[in-house]
Amino acid sequence: MRIQEYQSKRIFSHYGIPIPKGRVAINAIIADHIYEELKPDVVIKAQVLTSGRGKAGGIRLAKSAEQVEQITNDILGLTIKGMPVKKILVEEAVKIDQEYFIAIITDKDAGMPALMASKYGGMDIEDAVRENSSAIYTLPIDPLAGLLEFQVRSAALAVELPKQLWNDFADIVLALWKLYEENDADSVEINPLVISEGDKLIALDAKVNIDDNAIYRHPELTEYFDLEEEDRMEYQAKKYGLSYVKLDGDIGCMVNGAGLAMATLDLLSDQGGKPANFLDIGGGANSEKVSSGLKILMQDERVKVILINIFGGITRCDEVAKGLLSVFNNTTIELPVVIRLAGTNAVEGLEMLKNSGLIVVENIGEAARISVQLSTGSKK
């Protein structure tokens, strides 16, 4: 679960990580009120769950009420990497003497957390890493021992931080570790962490990404879930306990079991087709999950054909048929639907679907071929 910057900063503040004063706004009137509290200079930042806001014109400095109104309206009219800007963060402007990059991530290859630090913070961090892979200092963190103070000092030394700031730096990084650990985060990031006036370290930006699989342990974090920023179909899949990943094709896929789902996507690709999604209804799926999965696929305007591939083990094929019929009997489906049912109660399930209008195929290879033909208009 990705969290907006203003929400991430709220969490930062709870852990004692210094951040600029500021509040979120949805229009120029609210932005002007915030400006009156923070003037003379403020920074107005687009709140979207993507990188590259600065280069897209989503982060700008305002020095007057007139500029606040103009810049707010300009930024709220932006679409950054396909995401419309609906909220802005208005913050006090901070004088920057030096920028750094700090993050704690889950290193899936190493199977443990890692501390990352660089003296090249801000918008240019990606270019710096691209030109010099050693621009980021990376240190594995033993999950049992946790992040230790000597490791934080090593990071401070690696990024050439002035020695008089080492204690403040340690407080921030150890607080970042505590945040990461206590909230089951995938990653937490400050970019940039800046030295400001009076030799103060301040987190100018904040990113917190929580492991979706751990959300049930942190119900207090659900308030940060922003439906407007989340893909509609991904949100609905989470709601019904389905595994959904949006892809860039036009064949909607619903399968039970991750392995079977991946094999189905491979078969479509081998036939020259392009899957629109990965949708796993899971083992033991009941009719409600099946109908919910089908409704999600039907919402995708890109989809030209739906392929359903079910191999019944714990999942009963008659339950799958029941779920499909509950949708077909109440909704007009204009898309062709190809289905392959095999395994537990397959005979019963196929009998139920006999007059449903679905394209029933026994072999998954054949089902994939027909689905690709229907999506491309080929007659082969």
Rank of each mutant, 00 (worst) to 15 (best):
R2P: 06
Q7I: 14
I11V: 11
S13E: 14
R23I: 05
A28V: 06
D32G: 14
K39A: 14
A46S: 03
L61K: 07
Q70A: 15
P84M: 03
K86L: 10
L89V: 00
L89D: 05
E91G: 02
E91L: 05
E91D: 14
V94Y: 05
K95T: 06
F101A: 05
A103P: 15
I104Y: 06
A128K: 07
V129D: 12
R130G: 11
R130I: 04
A135I: 01
P140K: 03
D142G: 10
G146L: 02
V152S: 02
L157C: 07
A158W: 06
E160F: 12
W166V: 13
W166I: 04
D168I: 07
A175Q: 08
L176R: 14
L179F: 00
Y180P: 14
P192D: 02
L204C: 13
V208N: 04
I215D: 00
Y216N: 00
H218S: 10
L221V: 06
Y224I: 05
Y224A: 04
Y224D: 01
F225Y: 15
L227H: 08
E229D: 09
D231H: 01
S243I: 05
Y244F: 11
G259S: 04
L260M: 03
T264H: 10
L267K: 12
G283S: 13
G283T: 13
G284P: 09
E288L: 11
E301F: 01
I308Y: 01
G312A: 06
G313M: 00
V320W: 13
G323H: 04
V337I: 01
V337L: 09
G343L: 15
V347L: 12
N355I: 04
G357W: 02
E362L: 14
N363C: 09
G365Y: 15
E366W: 15
Q373N: 15
L374G: 01
T376E: 09
S378W: 14
